[in-house]
Design a protein around this nucleic acid. Structure first.
Lengths: 295, 295
DNA sequence: AGAATTGATCGTTAAAACCGATCAATTTGT
DNA sequence: ACAAATTGATCGGTTTTAACGATCAATTCT
């Protein structure tokens, strides 16, 4: 008796047809016939009734089937346990991240790669929607982004910290000295904003509608690095989450006052999918470092 | 991954020594080494640390061991269950029976269940045709009925005893005293008969046609128990196999004279199907008790 | 240092798994 | 009713692999 034979038996029992089963097992019908026969010989009792041109489980076959299933399942369980164990000494972890959270992720990665140098990390930048799509397709294991209330179910959300929308300006900008600023005051500030599609932009647009304010938008940029570079030149300001400029000392974030100005930074997980140990570990590290990100 | 390899692994893990383990397994150390290596390759992780001149389980090996044990144990359990089944200490036996043979079956069952108390019996009443269909579908393992010459092939027939068609009357019935009666004499006897579909009825109808006799049929009943109850009231008579009233002392069977008045009580088996040990045993018991049923 | 023990490795052999072709039995289609 | 299609069993041949014996390298024991 070998696991191979048990797998053959299970499939044959399921389909009650040797020819189909052999196809599903990628072997010839001849081989399946022989292997089943060999198993029957070893067990000393037929597992199938060969009646007419079909096969049907005998009583013995019916009684044996659950044991065959259990045996194969146990073997697979053992295999999976090892895969899990291994996933911390080998394997790949793919993380999607939106711009505002790259700094936090970078800090967490430094810890992570020190602890698990053999796990290959793949970091994917993208808009929230891009990443959600990738998460859905299983192209990434987890993603970091700011709250997207639009998507209610299908994901498991883990809150990291909350951050305030802010006017981002160069340190020498006239408004850099302010502690906070209202939406109304923005109408006289020349702004460049992230392109439509960035969730921060969608959020901000809605906010302006609510407050019935029109602004002096002079440009839109679909790359946040470039955006910040432009802002760093001192000629423009922009709107981002306050936590976006942790690694830009030359910039200053001025909090926006008013309702609905804070959003949560989250880890988003696919649900119903096995969660890699390495992913869980990364989430722990992120949570620890997130404490430094209250803005 | 094969059971063979798991067994090798278990023994090697137990002894922590490939040479000893290979001896215990009646293979060479070389073979054991190769098979363990093959298993490790498939699992993608070493199961043993080759430290100095001994082997010790790695963490992965320790984690895998219980699964290997469980897998092998399940496979053995399956094997043992079948051995049990073969030794008649478990299992199910489904027997179809037509009315006239219930008494014989009951007697045989009393013996059988005393000898094999752990075999679950399922008794299914039905007309001969019902039971033949069930036999075809594998819903019953064997059936007891009177000869149905119509179906020539596809079944294995085992003769139990022969019985004569008889007029069944209450002990106080005017005809109860007779030893035998001819078909012609029946035409003045108020009869109730089993419904069409019962094989005795089909047989009797054909008989009447052959003898060109019309009878005084007052009722047909599709339940033999009810039929016998009605006959027991003394108002009617019926036609059944003489052996049908072994458990009805108040009734009397008067043999019908003439040709073709005896039919065989048979066990009918499906052919080309593995025959349960329990079924073979039941057939032996039936054959033994059938000797008391000459009528 | 020399002998003994242990597991890995190599080349060979025997066993088996597997395949393609064919056959017999049965069902389906016409 | 007969022909075509389907199904599982079987046979001979090929490939794969489990098993073997011999040897090697590393380590331990004497």
């Amino acid at each position: 008796m070998e696991l191979r034979q048990l797998k053959y038996f299970i499939k044959a029992a399921e389909l009650e047809n040797f020819t189909e089963a052999s196809g599903a097992l990628y072997i010839t019908q001849s081989t399946l016939s022989q292997q089943i026969k060999q198993l029957e010989d070893e067990l000393g009792i037929p597992l199938f009734d060969r009646i007419a041109r079909r096969v049907r489980l005998t009583e013995a076959g019916r009684m044996f089937l659950p044991y065959a299933n259990k045996t194969v399942r146990d073997a697979n369980d053992g295999k999976n346990i090892l895969k899990d164990l291994m996933s911390l000494s080998t394997g790949t972890l793919k993380i999607g991240v939106t711009y505002g959270l790259t700094h936090l992720l970078a800090v967490a990665i430094m810890d992570f790669s020190k602890q698990f140098p053999n796990i290959y990390l793949e970091i994917i930048f993208g808009t929230t929607q891009d990443l959600l799509d990738k998460l859905e397709q299983g192209r990434i294991d987890m993603m970091l982004s700011f709250s997207q209330e639009e998507k209610p179910g299908g994901y498991k959300i883990e809150r990291l910290f909350s951050s305030c929308l802010a006017l981002i300006v160069h340190g020498g900008h006239p408004l850099a000295a302010k502690r906070q600023i209202s939406v109304k005051e923005l109408k006289d500030v020349p702004l460049i904003l992230p392109s439509k599609g960035f969730s921060i932009r969608n959020y901000f647009d809605r906010l302006l509608l609510q407050h019935n304010v029109t602004i002096d938008m002079q440009m839109e940029v679909n790359d946040i690095n470039m955006l910040l570079q432009l802002v760093g030149s001192g000629n423009w300001a922009t709107i981002l989450m306050g936590s976006s400029i942790f690694n830009h000392p030359e910039l200053k974030a001025v909090k926006l006052t008013g309702d609905n100005m804070t959003r949560n930074a989250n880890i988003t997980w696919p649900v119903g999918i096995y969660c890699k140990k390495s992913a869980l570990l990364m989430s722990q590290l992120l949570t620890i470092h997130a404490k430094d990100y209250h803005f």
